[in-house]
């Protein structure tokens, strides 16, 4: 079934583990989670081990990602939001590395699993809710009551605000998941066309050039999407954290 575009999303057990009747097996997804953490942490650790004042190219990459996320968070959630910097930085690096690792042929893309992206989104929104209530108590609920809304419209606006807040974990997770899934399926389908067309002799090989060009172009696009989705996830995380830090400011 090598030509099946969804085959790449199959989860296979590597080390079966069962605790209390629940399957906690170490799967290929788990393996790539470990690989993601190893690659991201290893890169950041090794490139900064020199701690040179004048950075090497690789050290610059690590510093740039640090400053990129720091300025994003400062703009999004203000200086009070900087206490969430480790969280946003970890999320961005984890998702970016996972997306980029997924670009390797035969590698498993953990961000194409809805449960993974949903868990990350719930982690973000859960942090917003917990910190919001911890810091502002019931004042956090001002988040749902925008300023300057006429009294008659208020119930409607509050209802909309509550629904939009509740849909955040879904939109946040589905955006990342669907982008990675759709991109990988599209790549696989076009690459599959190349293989199946070239099976039809010389004419088929000539015709296979078109999907081949498409595959190359899509690969470039997918690298862009891999970065862009990590960026979008981080930006939205900053915006949501801003609600926790400054409720009622919008």
């Amino acid at each position: 079934m090598s030509n099946d575009p969804t085959h790449q999303f199959l989860v296979n057990k590597i080390v079966p583990i069962e605790i209390g009747g629940i399957d906690f097996s170490f799967t290929n997804a788990s393996l790539f989670m470990v690989a993601t953490v190893g690659a991201a942490a290893g890169f950041l650790y090794l490139t900064t081990s020199q701690r040179s004042v004048i950075p090497t190219r690789m050290q610059s990459v690590s510093e740039l990602s640090y400053e990129f996320i720091a300025s994003m968070l400062r703009e999004g959630a203000g200086s009070h939001g900087m206490k969430f910097f480790p969280m946003v930085f970890s999320l961005f690096m984890f998702i970016l590395t996972a997306n980029l690792l997924g670009m390797f042929p035969y590698f498993f893309t953990i961000t194409s699993q809805i449960i993974v992206t949903f868990a990350l989104a719930v982690f973000v929104v859960g942090t917003v809710i917990l910190y919001g209530f911890y810091k502002h108590g019931l004042g956090f609920l001002k988040l749902f009551v925008p300023h300057g809304v006429p009294g008659a419209l208020l119930p409607l606006v509050v209802a909309i605000e509550v629904i939009s807040f509740l849909s955040r974990p879904i939109s946040l997770s589905v955006r990342l998941f669907a982008n990675m899934l759709a991109g990988h399926i599209t790549l696989k389908v076009f690459a599959g066309f190349v293989a199946s067309l070239s099976a039809f002799g010389a004419l088929g090989i000539g015709g296979a050039v078109l999907p081949l060009i498409m595959t190359v172009a899509l690969t470039g696009l997918e690298f862009l999407v891999a970065f862009l989705q990590a960026y979008v996830f981080a930006v939205l995380t900053c915006m949501y954290l801003n609600d926790a830090v400054h409720p009622g400011s919008h």
Partner: peptide, 29 residues
């Protein structure tokens, strides 16, 4: 069928990653 395992391993790996970032990498950079 694999949701429980995915969640557990994500929690382990991402938790470890978060700790590494907040204790080692971020102070260093």
């Amino acid at each position: 069928t694999h949701f429980a395992s995915q969640l557990l391993w994500l929690a382990i790996t991402f938790g470890l990653f978060y700790l590494l970032m907040s204790k080692v990498i971020i102070p260093r950079i």
